[in-house]
Design a protein around this nucleic acid. Sequence first.
RNA 1: GGUCCCGUAGCUCAACCGGAUAGAGCACCUGCCUUCUAAGCAGGGGGUUGCAGGUUCGAGUCCUGCCGGGAUCGCCA
Length: 585
Amino acid sequence: MDVFSGFHGHVLAAVQQLKHDGVVPKDASVQGISLGAPKDAGHGDLATNAAMVLAKPAKLPPRALAERIVPLLSSDPFVETVEIAGPGFINLTLKQSFWPSVCRMVLEQGDAFGRSAIGKGDAINVEYVSANPTGPMHVGHCRGAVFGDALANLLAFAGHEVTREYYVNDAGAQVDVLARSAFLRYREALGEDIGEIPEGLYPGDYLKPVGQNLASNHGRDLLEMTEAEWLPLVRSAALKAMLGMIENDLAQLDIRHDVFFSERSMIDGEDEVAETIADLKSKGLVYEGRLPPPKGKLDEDWEDRVQLLFRSTEFGDDQDRPLVKADGTYTYFAADIAYHYDKFRRGFRSMIDVWGADHSGHIKRMSAALQALTDGLAQLDVKICQLVRLFRAGEPVKMSKRAGTFVTLRDVVDEVGAGPVRFMMLYRKNDAPLDFDFAKVTEQSRDNPVFYVQYAHARASSVQRNAAEAFRHLVLDREHLATADLDRLEDESELALMRRLAQFPRLVEAAAEAHEPHRIAFYLYDLAGDFHGLWNRGKDLPQLRFIHQNDLELTRARVALVVATQQVLASGLGILGVRAVHELH
RNA sequence: GGUCCCGUAGCUCAACCGGAUAGAGCACCUGCCUUCUAAGCAGGGGGUUGCAGGUUCGAGUCCUGCCGGGAUCGCCA
């Protein structure tokens, strides 16, 4: 619930009145009319562009039209002044008494403050991580994992019914490689000297326990079988172990999925992929044809052949895309189409995929295929997370899978903690590259936003502890503090803080609609800044301190503001999936 | 060569479906510790938003073309 929605309603009502009076044509669109806090506080508390948007249809200069709107807005009991400024903005300055009412609203609503109904309970599917189940999560998976999880939180906070999903690529060639690698460890567990792991197999030690399990469950039986016989057994055991490991890794970051969707499940039994391709074929979007060789890089293995192609060029792709590989199995793309179609048939009209930058080329064709299959009923938004570059005290961290020097997700979490990792991953737009410096993330200064925001939350706890000590009978419950005389909060720093709190609900909605959780992180940083600023003004001006030994009512009002601020900090951190702390060390 | 992403202060980055004088942090300069946590606060300098056009009341944001960086282009997923 946006605390300003009432004012927005008044603006629209004023426009309606002008339509009724014949000043504005009845069919003029009110779509572009916005009402929000201007960047510059000097322009008042709220500004609307209504006069500029309607100037053209009304055939009046913006400022002249504004003259007609102003008197209609002045009647609001919370509006102090209405002014016309610049090219035709209408600026509202609210009565000072409005802001304490926002603070009271935060206290009364608690963690419901800022929640929104814009999602209308619509089912939305967020697919993220979906790393190949062939080993532990490495640091490269971190960003997408955190981003997807925070986005899911944000959408839930904004009133969507969110399903968190992981697509398990358990049908491709790489899981057969996994099985062969595990089989080698099985032989090792039986006492055989396997020597160096051959090129092309997974060398990691994490497969040793899988081999040991196979040995204790099957003894030497698997050795008697042909590869065609043991491979499905070993593959399924290895997959189960890998997925367990991945779930554990994700749990380190407080990430849990609702659904693990198996690619293989689509082709076991009924072939869902074939059905999907048939559907596309019936729409005339699949044909047998040839592709030109890839440009830019020389490929020795290239051979021209006829293959089954999806007509993605009809949707703006630069090339049609193959659905079946040379060996007759489906391409990743074909399976992915079927998978998204499956989501649609499970009732999702809104889907979000979180992909790494290396998948960006697939967006257009995937959207195209889904659009074709669902006749445009399903919406897919693909969020691309750019690369994370690791640094240690300014020096890039070099990683090599082969040399075993790649940094796992667990390494990072162990070193800096889940909260800081999550916050830093979100303190950047998803489509911009991100530098992650271990030294900076663990540093405790304003330069480190994680610390800065956590510090504000901890400080709020500290103030409450001190207040409780100063006043034995002070009740710190939110409900009780909401009854404090909040009109005594009248210093400019206090008003600034309350204005910031008032922005939260609107910010949540904007971030949710844009699918941009990073906005929450930046907001929290600003909010923390306002709070630290107020706290420190108490150093120069003792009358601004939160606790006044001889004035219980003033203390209650100030502490109420502290608690309200802490509530919003906690809500925002909750969306980011970062645990709020009450003390820093 | 095609497609996608990025280009904003010396550095790292923001900027709410196009809004007013483009904002933070770091670094630099000036103040503030017998004080509710100075791990902080207040203030100052610093900009042709890569370049050139276009759309309109209004463009960092949308469109076109260039320049620069990254990703990607059947038999990995």
